[in-house]
Nucleic acid binder design. Structure first.
Lengths: 145, 145
DNA sequence: GCCCAGATACGAACACTTCGCATCTGCGAA
DNA sequence: TTCGCAGATGCGAAGTGTTCGTATCTGGGC
């Protein structure tokens, strides 16, 4: 089990929440991958080990873990949201190929600070993905060369 | 009719596309408001004047107008996307009250340029809304005072 | 006015997510 | 160890936002 997954489970225990099969399995799955998984992917993977775990349980579990700050979800444009263990960094999703790129949050610090000052709005950069085009899908094949 | 709506209809004509009741009504509606309307809102409003116009027509019309660059849609987190006449600026949506704030695109220029240089990713800042909290919904009532 | 590619009405289907409710279970107390 | 019960789950149905198939209709060029 990854260190982060172990920590998440420890956090559950520390707050007096139940460690159930669904919760443990989902957390371990998220801890074991760096992929960006949708609830449905997670349900499918979880059901390989525990076929009795229902999709709605996966949704509810993810919602709870999200609320408790142990996992986060990111909304893509139209498709399903994807989930990962709490890490709070922005994501960029290519509109052409769906590729997800992680960005360190500090790239956004200046913008977030300015928007807070000027517009009185506190941006949560990690909640919605930024859509756009990755380098192989830019108009007229623009490259870095 | 607003100037922008008139322009959009002119653009349709110039490209040899048909000016139908659905298209004209939707464009005029979008031109007459600064609100951020979902497809469903648009359908409801359109149907007050033309009850025969079907929701699916509204969706298809919006999709076409979007494709032709006359309107744009913005994805909120979980709820429905909202539409407006082409303007291409980012939006910020309060997670608490759903309020939508428009931001001039140039606030993002530095970030977009840097991300393009460093990550080879071309962000489309207008496609997904930025989620967060407006000033009345910030944690611990933080204000600008 | 006639014609037909393109647009529409209608409803069914779809993908993703939430809900209600009966049953079950983790875990603290006895 | 067993007991009790708040909280978690299984299951299916419903909800929401959107897309699709198909028969019919219509804008606008002739």
């Amino acid at each position: 089990m990854s260190i982060t997954a172990a920590r998440a489970i420890e956090a559950l225990r520390a707050e007096g929440r139940r460690i159930t099969t669904a919760r443990r399995t989902i957390i371990e799955l998220l801890g074991a991958t760096h992929d960006h998984l949708t609830a449905d992917h997670i349900a499918t993977a979880v059901q390989q080990a525990h076929p009795e775990i229902h999709v709605s349980t996966v949704y509810r579990t993810l919602e709870s873990l999200d609320e408790w700050g142990l996992v986060e979800h990111v909304h893509r444009g139209q498709g399903a949201a994807f989930f990962h263990l709490a890490a709070s960094h922005p994501h960029m999703v290519c509109e052409e190929c769906g590729r997800v790129i992680d960005v360190p949050g500090d790239e956004f610090e200046a913008l977030v600070a300015r928007v807070r000052d000027v517009y009185g709005f506190d941006i949560d950069v990690a909640h919605n993905a930024l859509m756009g085009r990755c380098l192989v899908h830019q108009p007229r094949g623009h490259s870095l060369a």
